[in-house]
Nucleic acid binder design. Sequence first.
RNA 1: CGGGGCGUAGCGCAGCCUGGUAGCGCACUUGGUUCGGGACCAAGGGGUCGGUGGUUCAAAUCCACUCGCCCCGACCA
Length: 431
Amino acid sequence: LFIPMSFLSKEAEHVEGFAKECAVVTHHRLGAAEGGGVGPAPDSVLEEPLIVRPTSETVIYAMYSKWIKSYRDLPLLLNQWANVVRWEMRTRLFLRTTEFLWQEGHTAHATHEESWDEVTKILEIYRRFAEEWMAVPVLTGVKTDAEKFAGALQTTCIEAMMQDGKALQAGTSHDLGQNFARAFDVKFQDETGSWQHCWQTSWGVSTRLIGALIMVHSDDQGLVIPPKLAATHAVIVPIYRDEAGKAKVLEVARQLKERLSVSGLGIVLDDRDTVSPGFKYNEWELKGVPVRLEIGPRDVEQGVCVAVPRVPTRELREGERRQKETLPLDGAPEHLKALLGDLQKALYARALTFREEHSYTIDDYAQFQADIEKGGFFWAHWCGSSACEAKIKDETKATIRCVPFDAKKEPGACMVCGAPSGQRVVFARAY
RNA sequence: CGGGGCGUAGCGCAGCCUGGUAGCGCACUUGGUUCGGGACCAAGGGGUCGGUGGUUCAAAUCCACUCGCCCCGACCA
């Protein structure tokens, strides 16, 4: 949690990147303050202030330099879930909180080829998690020098589009080269006995992903949680009028819950009788439970239940409140699993369609300046100069989200200066 | 730091301009009718208006000071 201040200053770019947003611990004790109450005790000043970690490269690499001596010690990987603090000027719920929980990995390798493999391997894991679990389509690519991690050779990232057309960096994987190895003296002897600096990587995703999940899928009716991430897959809402009906319906509902639960699904039976079914519908939609199963007297007679998936309300057609599907109670687990699978795919497809509908190729800078106002991703040619990048940021607040890996190679001219470009990069306003 | 706004019932707000000791919705309590999309009717309980000082016969309302919070910009995963 605490990093000696001197560690931060060992890698020049790294300090520069984080110095402005560090919480600093200067005392280790409170004492009586002059005007009453308590204050930092003057005689408890730390000889060296401690920094509340904004990221852990420096502490971890200080240890790596002690642990790593031989090529036989490599590769080395350390992963931790930890809270970090970045004293940003402005916070934003889920997206940029002063303190946040994240996962950070740190590796050391013998060769650059090997460390780069690690960088791309992790990025691919992040991509798959975003797309296959969160149902959030992402672009993968490399950050420009202006946007990369402080101290890295290169930063790769996954970038998602929110429903307002703004971009969100959802995860990063850094190629640190030998920068930190040199700063922290992380060296090993190779097979020939000569000393080499390690090649390192670091990578992370944070609770920001929760913000991404909300901003990509949810609507004014509440959360939308992709089935693969939902703890509760379905809620059963029993419907009845009188005590006799209640007994009959609840009995069947309990059996249904049991059958679905043993098949591995998370099921809640909402048998509260203090609120109406309609209230329950809305409440569970608010909580984002993927499927609601209604079961009433008529259904019990027919041996069925009614399944209603939690789809974003803007998908609903005119005059149609919700799409409903009648499932036979026999084989309910299989039917529900199929429905959840469809829902997962539909959420991804919907988000992908949204992104594509808000992605544009553009060559004219004046047009870009006008169009950027409506949000979205803009694929444009860029000469590679920081000057053009900065000019665009100043004039439009748009940044280069990434130089995409899978962009086709096509010659073009920089949107700003006209210098040659080998491929398009993605511009957007970002959170 | 620069700009803007707000503190009145548990929550969300109106009242303030044009002073006369508070009102609405939700929530809560009780009774009844309801229950397949956030129920309805009736009867209740709950605040002294962020704080301090001033003006006045009288202050949520006017004035001064003060405390707290929020939004926008620069920063940023």
